[in-house]
Design a protein around this nucleic acid. Structure first.
Lengths: 338, 338
DNA sequence: AGGACTCGTGGAAACGCTTCCACGACCGCT
DNA sequence: AGCGGTCGTGGAAGCGTTTCCACGAGTCCT
């Protein structure tokens, strides 16, 4: 028994003068161990710097102690979205005092998605949280075949039966648009998200709802599709100003796009909110920092990440396939831009 | 032998009418298998949808087939840095046709860093690539104790003996600054990166070098510390304009900061490059897209990620502790901003 | 024709852990 | 005093692989 590699349970057992079984019990915090034995084992663990071998443990427990957040985005662009960063932060925070680890997996194309599928099927993780689904996304199907619990961040596009947690995107967009209409704005435009994404669709639907609720028709000139990025927002606003110079309000489906719109408006010499009112979505940090500060729609990120984890962990624990989902209320945050 | 869980080697063996050993051999592509046996096994694998259990395999091979990219950044802010996204993209691309998986691990505080240390020590990964080190970073020490191969993206701050791959930051900054001086600019400022990061320090050092090479002293009024973000760049440029209204050139240590500077300059009514020339660093996508397009310093990302992987994989294969490092040349890309 | 190969194959040990089961020792009760 | 309990403990089986070793059947040489 040389001490070349990492120390094993046996070595600890020998040093502590007990059996492997007892060491295992101590390491796993079983109550059925005498104080003396426990202490001897602890000492041995410390002097040997023993760390259980995860592979060996997983082989018998069928648990890895890690869950994956998988991002399926053609571009690596998603990284720059503050919403994504918030989700990561929220999940990490909730996991902080558990022994569950969070790993991020990114797939840019179909090949990488297949690779992630293999990774999951091979048993590297206990469950996965899936984010950012475009219309043509293969991952839900790939993962469904793995029999590993999955919960989506965001409603699935095709209404399939999976667990998910989402914000009330339509409701938030409706509130935002209504806020603009209630101010007496006559030409309320929108910069939508990508319309092959649910969040893009739902926020656009909310915009339409609000308009129709005020007895207005949707004017195609006032709708431009964006891509959730600041740069996309800038370009979209420029297009809008060209197509409809009389625009006096705009609902951008994300804060970065709203910030981009702000820049385009400044470049065009329009004052915000006097000439054009702007509302964003997400209540990202940038919404507070920009000039003027953005009126925006806040999502309860704390709650959403907690629910995401609750749903996933319950499915992992119980091993059932019950699908369950939650939709969280949004809140309009009024600042200077509208 | 019920088929409740995932199928095992045994089940495949029985179905194919061979032994476990043979199945293992064909699954692992050993040449010492007869064509008939191979075919029978393949068929069985296909009908059973057999996927080897990674835990069991790792237990004996001591390999997990995954490497980690760990990000140690107090903020989740690093996600929004295009340089980070490029590294991820490069690594994924190089790994695409291997069976090695890349997972991302993020640590925001000391506690999460310890947790990552445990994750690694438990044997979840074969090696780690460590990114974005601040001065007070604990991770190199934590990881050193795990005996898992580590290579740093970026020179270590304290000159410790570890493998790393870095761009010639000082050289790039020197070239950028020289480019400005050679145009006859008299008041060349810099917006530095965080000075507790190596990239921040080295790029600042290159700026000083170039200045001194031209027989100029560094003017403290012309040096403002930024944080690599666009917003930080905007604020820094504003400070610069206030402290030194006669500034006629600025070297920003990252493209996002340069873009921020561009905005501040536009807001202040300065023309670029006529009144003030601007040079960035990284040659991010945004450098091409902004107005005017940025002159910037390109790093050979393709090479850097390839080297990162080469160094790491060699250490994994050979199991040696040889430290080795590479510094890659940068290249000045001239566009309209300077 | 017989020995020395190579080649494909299967049995079995090993990887490091958890957990079932059995077994003594001790307790408090009747 | 004897009996049923609880409690702490150790032995051993088992998780799904890989891989060493041995073995029989060919093949090729002298």
């Amino acid at each position: 028994m040389t001490t070349v590699g990492a120390p094993t349970l046996d070595e600890v057992a020998v040093l502590a003068g007990v059996s492997r079984a007892t060491v295992s019990r101590v390491v796993n915090g079983s109550p059925r161990v005498s104080p003396e034995a426990r202490q001897a084992v602890q000492a041995a663990v410390d002097t040997l710097r023993y760390v259980p071998n995860r592979m060996a443990r997983s082989l018998v427990t069928r648990r890895t102690g890690t869950i994956a957040l998988v991002l399926s985005e053609s571009d690596t662009q998603i990284f720059s979205d503050p919403f994504f960063a918030s989700i990561v932060r929220g999940l990490s925070a909730h996991l902080a005092d558990t022994e569950l680890h969070l790993v991020l997996l990114a797939a840019r194309d179909a090949r990488e998605q297949e690779k992630i599928g293999r990774y999951v099927r091979q048993g590297h993780v206990d469950g996965v949280i899936l984010m950012s689904l475009h219309g043509d996304d293969l991952l839900p199907d790939i993962l469904a075949r793995t029999h590993v619990p999955v919960v989506l961040s965001g409603r699935p596009l095709d209404g399939r039966a999976v667990s998910f947690v989402d914000a009330d995107n339509a409701g938030g967009a409706r509130a935002a648009t209504r806020h603009l209409l209630d101010q007496g704005r006559r030409r309320v435009a929108t910069i939508t998200g990508p319309l092959d994404m649910v969040a893009g669709q739902d926020r656009y639907a909310g915009y339409r709802d609000a308009l129709e609720g005020h007895g207005r028709a949707v004017d195609a000139d006032l709708v431009v599709e964006g891509d959730f990025t600041e740069d996309g927002g800038l370009r979209a606003m420029a297009t809008l100003l060209e197509r409809a110079p009389d625009v006096d309000a705009v609902f951008a489906a994300s804060d970065p796009m709203a910030v981009g719109a702000l820049q385009a408006l400044r470049a065009a010499g329009r004052r915000v909110p006097d000439d054009v009112a702007v509302v964003g979505f997400d209540d990202a940090a940038v919404a507070r920092a920009c000039d003027p500060p953005l009126t925006t729609v806040a999502q309860p990120l704390e709650d959403m990440t907690r629910l995401l984890l609750e749903l996933l962990l319950r499915r992992i624990e119980d091993g059932d396939d019950a699908v369950e989902s939650r939709v969280c209320e949004t809140r309009l945050v009024r600042r200077a831009s509208a």
